[in-house]
């Protein structure tokens, strides 16, 4: 019973976060709605359930580390962080504006809780490898999570990082691939084929969990399974829908990096499910 209500709370949070993402990007006049909407359950399941963190004490030494390697979905991260209590929700509408802490792509410490600057794709998993190696060396208990886009894993550096994480048996590292099958130029499989995606990670000595990335129960269960795996890093390949929740944006590459105008925002909010 209490488990049900916990999941319901997370689902409700996902809806509110989606509304905020749409409003922020519309107010900014630019940004990336498609990939932000596809990663909502992944982020909410982490920040509101499994991530060990203290929003009021962002540099708490024992916090789990989260790296947003697909930095262009900063609006989703900002919305989740605001609801978690890192900064006031009103600040969300300053996204991408001069003087705002909410940069177009995440900038370290702006606001506190952003661990490192990201935005040039392919670099976050390596940062996660460094954090996880350091935690093992120093005996730190915290875990490191890295969220990647699926188009992003076309970057060669991702596989350098994957190889090194397998080599160092980083069971304190959890990667998540937002597998929405879309990127700017179209389908990932047309732009540069990624399947069999899970097999690639297995070949690099990772434990792979494949889930429906919009089923919050599966998301949370995957984080638990990842934490229980020993001697291997884990990657969660989360099957998602780009633009999830807004019918006219779903599976449309055109909404990768385009802001809705006022009418489109109204329509999107009215149709949001």
């Amino acid at each position: 019973m209490s488990e049900m209500s916990e999941l319901e709370k997370l689902q409700r949070m996902c809806r509110v976060v989606r509304e905020d993402i749409l409003r922020m990007i519309a107010a900014a006049g630019s940004g990336h709605p498609g990939g932000s909407l596809s990663a909502v359950e992944i982020l909410v399941g982490l920040y509101f359930s499994r991530l060990r963190h203290r929003p009021a004490e962002p540099d708490w030494a024992e916090r789990d580390r989260f790296i947003l390697s697909k930095g262009h979905i900063a609006p989703a991260l900002y919305a989740v962080m605001a609801h978690a209590g890192y900064f006031p929700r009103e600040e969300l509408l300053t996204l991408r504006k001069l003087g705002s802490r909410l940069q177009g792509h995440p900038a370290k410490g702006r606001p506190p809780g952003i661990e490192v600057s990201t935005g040039s794709l392919g670099q976050g998993l390596s940062i996660g490898v460094g954090l996880a190696v350091a935690a093992k060396l120093c005996g730190y208990p915290w875990r490191t999570y890295v969220l990647m886009g699926d188009g992003e894993i076309q970057e060669g550096q991702i596989w350098e990082a994957a190889m090194s994480a397998g080599h160092y048996r980083l069971d304190n590292l959890c990667g998540i691939v937002d597998r929405n099958y879309m990127q700017i130029d179209g389908s990932t499989e047309d732009v540069m084929m990624l399947d069999p995606c899970a097999d690639k990670w297995r070949a690099f000595n990772w434990h792979v969990i494949e889930i429906d990335g919009h089923d919050i129960a599966q998301v949370v269960a995957a984080y638990d399974e990842a934490a229980s795996v020993k001697n291997k890093p884990t990657v969660i390949v989360a099957r998602t829908i780009k633009g999830k929740g807004v019918p006219f944006m779903e599976n449309k590459a055109a909404w990768h990096g385009k802001a809705p105008n006022a009418q489109e925002l109204e329509l999107a909010l009215s149709q949001l499910y």
Binding site: Q123, S126, I127, G130, A134, A135, L137, C138, M163, S164
Partner: peptide, 17 residues
């Protein structure tokens, strides 16, 4: 794999090394 090495160093620095 220099690119990975540099970003892994960044992660280690974030952890205080």
């Amino acid at each position: 794999a220099e690119q990975n090495m540099l970003c892994a160093a960044a992660g280690m620095a974030l952890a205080g090394l």
